[in-house]
Nucleic acid binder design. Structure first.
Lengths: 241, 241
DNA sequence: GGCTTAGTATGGTATATACCAGTTGAGAAT
DNA sequence: ATTCTCAACTGGTATATACCATACTAAGCC
């Protein structure tokens, strides 16, 4: 079957080798689609097929109307480890960044209502944040907290680590987590923040978190750039529920 | 930004609604690309963009040269639960199937060598299996076992559950697992078995498994149809390593 | 310096068309 | 009834071309 028969696969392989060999360095920009298609004696459409294929494997990524780039190494993310984004990224020798976009109190969206097991239209705190690695936006997060457990949350300095605020002001810490992973096409909100084309593929990690008393305290939706992360975990095997 | 401005997004939305409303039932075949593009007064290329977008969200899937279909509900898969494929799928009211493709002894591929922490070219047992839900192939698995822990493995009836064989003949059971998740374009091997186009997106779950004595006994590579599964887990939060 | 503005380059979207390569089903041959 | 053959149909790949929307740049202005 198909390694090198079709033209777009031949081009794909050629670009792949350029990346592997290090001729194209992580983070560097590829030549323009028009120039590349000319070099490979093909059309932009076919060339874009090759690029999309590489994109699906996370080897290259694009920024809307800016160009194609070679993907940097992935960050490893373990949802079961009690460490914040900053700590995890720093430990991997990378430079993390966080930008608070918005914090408010809103009626719980349907999905949040279900996850937090609260009545319809219950107000919940919502935090929207954008996180980066080495200056590249890789993660858009929406956090929803049950205000019953976090009175006056918005009064605190939300630019700090959430888990620190939980610990200091409410004496709560994450003790158990339940998460689900969906490969998705990124929605308009996430893709605009991550500067990718609407609908380009990403990874949605949906978490519900419990504190030391097994109370369901919050949930979040993490929209990752598909090529920026590898989800990993290391746990004991459990008997079936 | 982009919900309904571009034509391919309008078409996407229209098809999406047809699926949501139940006019197009899970598993049913969509009209041909040519017919659909005519109905929406557009070209096949644009229509295929809409379909690819829906495919990225796992709402539709395609079978190579057979057509496009509405995706059935996803199966939930928890890598931390000690239950075999058959049990998990049955518990969700679905009908599982397994086909043994090949079983042999091969020199460990580089990745396997690394994961199992064995010297280069150590022979390992390899099992290739294809698994289905409700008659649809959703998972291609390659299993690699360290023969030091499973002498004469191939002598046993490998159509049975692996964990049963482990337990019965070797007194070993899974106690701990480490796994990593990669969204990937499916390789030629996996895609031909899953009847998808080479390079179409899938989910690779790479597991390394330890027994009750904490011995690294095997690893496997699970190539899932991207739209067929949702990875979920439920664990305690661990301190950072 | 800092701001505005127009031009250019880039990727994003779209049309029209053609041929290739498996799948399928109907009909012929047995 | 069973098998074989072949034509029709499906999605897969490819060419050629055009225009749109945004990002960037360099020139002009204050």
């Amino acid at each position: 079957m198909g390694q090198g028969k079709n033209q777009y696969q031949i081009i794909r392989t050629a670009l792949h080798e350029q990346i592997e060999s290090g001729a194209l360095k992580p983070g560097s920009k590829l030549p323009s689609e028009r120039l590349l298609s000319e070099k490979f004696s093909t059309t932009r459409i076919t060339l874009r097929e090759s690029l999309s294929s590489l994109e699906a494997d996370g080897l290259v990524y694009r920024e809307d109307r800016r160009g194609w780039f070679v993907s940097p190494e992935r960050v490893t993310y373990d949802p079961t480890v009690n460490a914040n984004f900053h700590t995890i990224v720093t430990h991997q020798g990378r430079v993390p960044g966080t930008r608070m976009l918005h914090a408010d109190l809103v009626p719980a969206p349907t999905r949040v209502q279900k996850l937090l097991q609260i009545p319809a239209l219950t107000p919940v705190y919502r935090l929207q944040r954008l996180r980066s690695v080495d200056g590249r936006n890789v993660l858009y997060v929406e956090n929803y907290m049950n205000p019953a457990y976090f009175p006056d949350l918005l009064q605190h300095d939300l630019s700090r680590s959430l888990s620190d605020i939980y610990q200091e002001h409410y004496n709560r810490r994450y003790a158990r987590v339940s998460f689900r992973l969906y490969p998705v096409g990124l929605n308009a909100e996430a893709s605009s923040h991550l500067k990718v084309t609407t609908g380009s593929s990403g990874l949605l990690v949906e978490r519900t978190n419990y504190d030391q008393s097994n109370l369901l305290i919050d949930c979040d939706f993490e929209y990752w750039r598909q090529d920026a992360v590898v989800i990993a975990a290391n746990t004991t095997i459990n008997p079936m529920a």
